[in-house]
Simulated assay, not measured.
Amino acid sequence: MTDERPQRRPQHDRPKKRDVNGWIVLDKGVGMTSTHAVAAVKRALSAKKAGHAGTLDPLASGILPIALGEATKTVPFIMDGRKSYVFTVAWGAETNTDDSEGEIVERTDRVPDASEIEALLPRFVGQIQQVPPRFSAIKIQGERAYDLARDGEVVELQARTVEIDRLSLVHHDGDRSILEADCGKGTYVRAIARDLGRAIGCLGHIAALRRTRVGPFTEEDAVVVNDLATEAAALRPVETALSELPSINVSRDMAGRLMRGQSIILRGREAPLSGKIYATCGGVLVAVGDIERGELVPHRVFNLGA
């Protein structure tokens, strides 16, 4: 009898993992989880270390910034960045997930017209109070809200302050509307659709969602997994995540001190007086930190060959 079990791939035949440092701006497709997207990029580039900057639901497509190697140290700066979305709201029903993947919990025959929608949009611009969806990654006593909701538990999330810079109606046709939003950290577009539907009195949920910008990364920067034959064409520098911070060039001796976690004294008229800053040496990122009493105190140091 022949043994037809698949043969294990010899260890020496497996691609060797490499030190890859930088950002890949992935255009994630619908149906792929953020975790699977990271794994696909990591595998395509044979990278040792990778992580994403902000989960994108499987239902959603668009910009998913993926940090490789030393870039993972700059993820918080991207997470705090502004985001842009284009999304479709289906009117007439509310679901338990606030999108089309959930179960319908309430219906109505009411359908809004464009003027009703536009009249209420200003209510959702600026700093507003928003209750996150029950199916979200927010933790309740150490448990993810979506895990509790899937187990049938009643999930009660508290409203929190979020900031929406722009919310506009792009197209309206019967029971569907396409909108665009620019917003800050922690904003749930699914909650915008839900709350807008309730405010109009017609109910609503997300039917399609695409993220078009995250911090400095836009659709013009994005690539799909199949185009990652080589990182040279797609890999963005680590310091791209720090584009909104001032920078300063330091000497090799100063770079050495920063790399050891030691502060350096900044002199000269152009030296910042306060705030966050990043330092480079010979065009290579060395550290990011805070200015305190005329010194740069490093909080993150980078091993990029400075």
Rank of each mutant, 00 (worst) to 15 (best):
A306S: 13
T74W: 08
E292M: 08
E70D: 06
K276T: 11
K276Q: 14
A149D: 09
G152M: 09
T230V: 11
R134P: 03
S100P: 00
K48F: 03
V30N: 04
T74I: 11
V105Q: 10
P298C: 06
M254D: 15
S100Q: 12
R210K: 14
P298D: 04
R267K: 14
A60G: 06
G204N: 01
A145S: 14
K73V: 09
L228G: 09
V125K: 10
D113E: 15
V125Q: 12
L169F: 07
M259K: 14
A50Y: 12
R190N: 03
S115E: 15
H172D: 11
D253E: 15
I291N: 04
T230A: 14
K16F: 03
T35H: 14
V301H: 05
P58I: 00
H52S: 11
S168Q: 12
H12G: 00
E116H: 06
S251N: 09
G261D: 10
A119G: 08
R150K: 12
R176W: 02
R252T: 15
V297Q: 11
R18W: 02
N226M: 02
C281I: 08
A191H: 04
D113F: 13
I138P: 05
R210F: 04
V155R: 05
A44P: 03
R8Q: 13
E94C: 08
L167D: 01
L26N: 03
L209I: 00
R176D: 09
R236I: 00
R123F: 06
R176C: 11
L121E: 05
A232D: 15
K73I: 08
D27E: 13
L64E: 03
S136Q: 11
N249Q: 15
G126P: 07
R210P: 02
F124S: 05
V111I: 15
P216A: 02
G215N: 01
R160H: 14
G22S: 07
G126H: 06
P246S: 09
D195E: 08
I277Y: 03
